[in-house]
Nucleic acid binder design. Sequence first.
DNA 1: ATGGTCGGCTTCCGA
Length: 255
Amino acid sequence: MKIASFNINGVKARLPRLLEWLEGCKADVVCLQELKSLDENFPRLEFEDRGWHLELHGQKGFNGVALLSRAPLHDVRRGLPGMEDDPQARYIEGRHDGVLVASIYLPNGNPAPGPKYDYKLDFMEHLRCHAAGLIASEQPVVLAGDYNVIPENSDCYDPRAWEGDALFLPQTRAAYNRIVHQGWTDAIRLHHPGTDCFTFWDYQRGSWEKDHGIRIDHCLLSPAAADRLSDAGIDRMERGREKASDHVPVWIVLS
DNA sequence: ATGGTCGGCTTCCGA
């Protein structure tokens, strides 16, 4: 089973690029982030005509997450437990062929400190609590998405350039590690232990041309999923195409 | 040298 995650930065702006990538990706489940679309304005037919089942959790203008799947999903949940009334649409999960898959758009959190950073840490604490329950269930779980967290120095081109940024603050990395250390496997890290692991390049300052990227899109696997991990990758080439998102897709394969 | 660029029911905000 192949599961992919892609922050598309606007479904309407990305539609041709996204459909092309989906065609070649051959994924069974796709986690999308930053739809920037109300559910009623989402171009459903473009996907349904190609055989995708859709579960949307959108909002106007910003944020928004979705799951695309080859078969209908079960037990779909929108919003993290304890944050169901959050107007920001950042979490959706569903079960596909016995594997629980979540699409996560974790808050950016800048500027830090401030209310946006407080919200980021609050979201991470709610995610940590939910993740603990998922680990305890002993089922295969894949928590995929844009975490807006740079886990280690080697996950950015220049650690000094990111000092003080909400994606890289020690407190942010500590909150991320509190989740990972429950027993999750960072599958992309496992398959890209050195360089060439970036998943995001800013539109500004020629970041792509200079390879000034960061690794912030992650797939965390529960032990039951990690036992089945056979491959993982980053579709880096997507960043160099016309009308590209500032993120590229990441994916894992379970046997 | 404090720039630059995307997307969105846009004239600023979020990233």
